[in-house]
Design a protein around this nucleic acid. Structure first.
Lengths: 210, 210
DNA sequence: CTTTTTGAACTGACTGGTCAGTGCAAAAAC
DNA sequence: GTTTTTGCACTGACCAGTCAGTTCAAAAAG
């Protein structure tokens, strides 16, 4: 009987198909938006039949929700890793923040379509996947907030800073700068962009010339 | 009743209808996105007949494009006014930046739906109104870049800063912080949010406790 | 009289979701 | 070793519903 076998509980074949669908969906939805993207398009770009989409996902919305979870999971892991690496290396919280800025830039550089799609959907209201979006947002922002809070506790940051708001502002700074970089100055290097944001973070904007 | 005649060539009556359609469209599109919003919905929310929409705008896309121009025009004027007011008051470029942050917050506070909609569309590609979006974006960002450039010239800012990127980052900082404020902490005051962003701008994040 | 709005009917293209059927590799039977 | 069975994964034509845009006679507004 049992034919599925496979090493894990999930067949590798199916997982590969889902991955192809994620990749197709992410670029199409980033370009056109969720509603303007048809299931037929996603299937065609992924090189599978339309029925396969519905074999693997309950609906178009569910495909999108799982895509969101998948992508933000990668980002969150990357941010956390960056923060922990600086901690292991004995760096301070400013270094951790700086490393997370870089991790954010690397992520956006690697998955620009996902980032576009995420930004485009995050602040909408009355959408089916609203709760999913809130959860994954919180996971990512919490990493930044955590570092800020620890920095306040150990005296590295002023205890007058507003942790949630500052975290949002930092995320926004990286997000918008990176998206503009991708869209309007794609020829620039990541290091270049990182340096500009580092300068801003450390308040080295004001100051004398040359 | 109404003193029609109108100073310009456009009748006030027609202009009022268009205004109602803008307001209806902006909230619906902010919530649902452009594609998911129907012309019937827009007409219903505006309290006019569907035919009126097409009497006033050539198409759904044209309505949206004119809405974008209208909204960003308001923002740009507001930013410029803020910068000029500080200049008249003899303030420096840091003060101008700070005033513009406040102007941005006021705008987002007053027109949250427009802001959501704008962010959701800005980084998309292959859309009909792409060029419109680029133009209006540049108008708004140019005001920030102008202040930064003047600050570099008069020595108030380091000449090592990257003007376009820093401008993007500042816009992003305000944008994301404000949207998060609206979405997740609407009870907080504008002054409160402004203070937190001011602190970040002036690099007063690092530093000793209380 | 002219401009603007109404509102309902209509069209033609498009879309999310369905479902009966196919292909195939591993397991079971012989 | 060969034949048969099993059921997962996939297919793609099809359907019922939706939507942008059109049309137009009539009425309200000015």
């Amino acid at each position: 009987m049992e034919s599925s076998s496979a090493t894990a509980g999930v067949s590798t074949r199916r997982e590969a198909t889902r991955q192809k669908l994620y990749e197709a969906a992410v670029t199409l939805i980033a370009e056109q938006g969720f509603s303007a993207t048809t299931v037929d398009e996603i299937a065609e770009r992924a090189g599978v039949a339309k029925g396969t989409v519905y074999y693997n996902f309950a609906s178009k919305s569910v495909l999108f929700e799982e895509l969101l979870r998948h992508g933000v999971g990668l980002l969150t892991a990357s941010l956390r890793e960056a923060a922990e690496a600086t901690a292991r290396a004995g760096g301070g919280k400013v270094d951790a923040l700086d490393a997370m800025i870089r991790a954010g830039l690397v992520f956006i550089d690697r998955y620009p379509a996902f980032t576009q799609l995420y930004v485009a959907e995050l602040w909408r209201t009355n959408r089916a996947w609203q709760s999913t979006l809130m959860v994954v947002r919180q996971q990512a922002v919490a990493v930044v907030e955590g570092v800020l809070r620890e920095g306040v506790e150990n005296g590295e940051f002023s205890d007058e800073i507003d942790v949630p708001l500052t975290a949002s502002a930092l995320v926004g700074m990286v997000l918008v700068a990176a998206l503009d970089w991708q869209s309007f100055q794609p020829e620039r290097s990541l290091d270049d962009v990182h340096a500009a944001l580092s300068r801003l973070l450390q308040g080295r904007v004001s100051g004398r010339n040359g």
